[in-house]
């Protein structure tokens, strides 16, 4: 049982972080806090994908060594067990940059909301909207 938990430790950690982010997005009333929760949620999914790409047993970063480059010139194939799985890393590079772009747009919307309602609390915004009859 203990070995089962330790052998999948990164997966439990990703579930834990994802639930923390979801909790912040649902319960917290402040809009910036909701955005922080969304960031934590995104990072947890990136952690999950990078964990899928990890390999134990002497695997290193996915950059070919000088020896393997030399072998490639002689048409000798590299050993895949020597390098981490590069495909999840590629997908997550894209995901990180797109995530920051989303955060930037969300912060701009938050600034617009603050300029109109002069508050960032969700319940106060709803009260103001109800009073103004929208």
């Amino acid at each position: 049982m203990f070995e089962y938990i330790v052998s999948k430790f990164n997966y439990w950690a990703y579930i834990c972080l994802m639930m923390i982010g979801l909790y912040a997005m649902i319960v917290k009333g402040n809009l910036v806090k909701k955005l922080i929760g969304m960031n934590i949620f995104q990072v947890s999914i990136i952690l999950f994908y990078v964990s899928v790409g990890a390999k134990s047993g002497g695997a290193t970063v996915p950059i070919l060594t000088a020896e393997d480059i030399h072998h490639a010139h002689a048409h000798v194939l590299a050993n895949p067990l020597q390098y981490m799985n590069p495909l999840p890393h590629v997908l997550m590079l894209t995901a990180i940059v797109v995530g920051i772009a989303t955060t930037g747009v969300a912060l701009a919307i938050i600034i617009m909301i603050y300029n109109r309602y002069k508050t960032l609390e969700e319940d106060e915004i709803l009260v103001i909207r109800k009073e103004s009859g929208v």
Binding site: S7, Y11, S51, V52, K55, A59
Partner: peptide, 9 residues
Amino acid sequence: WSNPNAPAS
């Protein structure tokens, strides 16, 4: 986690 024989790898 980090099993070298996983289907993803």
